[in-house]
């Protein structure tokens, strides 16, 4: 049968769900071992962060697509969590091989790393489901006439998990390296996110990039950094 956009989306969703059937909702034995090898075991912090972010995600998803669809948001979040664990394990295996160390305490206790990785996994899930399918130009109005968000496209996820785009940028390449089965369309989507960040979002006034540029060049050269407007 001819390929249609809906058929293509269905195939991608089935593939993603299929790839993640063997990944659990909890860290695998291997991943749990990486956690245990840490000077400070990050497990409790990981679980607690996921709980907080699941609430934020479900709430914002419900606001965007209607309270009756909250269950869909929960399903997507759960798929995102499976992908997050799967990619984290692959990244750590690759780092263990590269650095010949098994204690990743600093990285695994870095909240920004976890939030970035989870945001990337959720973005992959949202893009696979067609994050744009709910897009109606930005805002709809609810029964009371108040605006409700309907655009779940990137960078929506950054706002939901409260993550600077600059930090999200850091995980993209390693994420693609760690998951060779990502479809061509998804890789292209992540590349589009990367370009958006590099060209626009990372240069917004509140970006951590400016502070890093200042540190890199020393305090005296700080005034040489161009303003976001430039």
């Amino acid at each position: 049968p001819p390929q249609t956009p809906i058929r293509a989306a269905m195939t991608s969703i089935q593939q993603l769900r299929g790839d993640l059937t063997s990944s659990g909702d909890q860290p695998s034995t291997n991943l749990a071992t990486y956690f245990k090898n840490c000077t400070v075991d990050p497990m409790q912090a990981v679980l607690s962060r996921l709980e907080t972010l699941e609430q934020a995600f479900s709430q914002r998803f419900g606001l965007a697509v209607g309270p009756r669809c909250i269950v869909l948001g929960c399903q997507r979040f759960k798929l995102g969590v499976r992908l997050y664990y799967k990619i984290m394990e692959a990244m750590l295996k690759s780092e263990e091989k590269r650095l010949s160390v098994q204690n990743f305490s600093k990285l695994l206790n870095d909240s920004t790393f976890h939030t970035s990785l989870l945001a990337c996994a959720l973005e992959v899930v949202m893009a696979t489901y067609g994050g744009g399918s709910f897009k109606t130009g930005g805002y709809n109005h609810d029964a009371a006439g108040d605006p409700v968000e309907t655009d779940l496209c990137f960078p929506w996820i950054l706002d939901v998990v409260d993550l600077p785009a600059f930090d999200f940028y850091k995980v993209i390449e390693s994420f693609i390296k760690a998951e060779p089965t990502l479809s061509k369309d998804i890789v292209k989507h992540l590349e589009t996110c990367e370009n958006l960040i590099m060209e626009r979002i990372a240069w917004r006034t509140d970006s951590p990039l400016f502070e890093l540029l200042k540190q890199e060049h020393g305090g005296g050269a700080a005034d040489q950094v161009e303003t976001p407007a430039s």
């Binding site: 690759s94 590269r98 650095l99 870095d110 920004t112 850091k170 390693s174 693609i176 292209k188």
Partner: peptide, 21 residues
């Protein structure tokens, strides 16, 4: 396969990107 351009060198990884090595 895809056309993504990998920019990280072999000696760079996620640990360096988050300043954790």
């Amino acid at each position: 396969s895809h056309d993504y351009h990998f920019g990280l060198e072999d000696h760079e990884g996620i640990s360096e990107l988050f300043d954790c090595d």
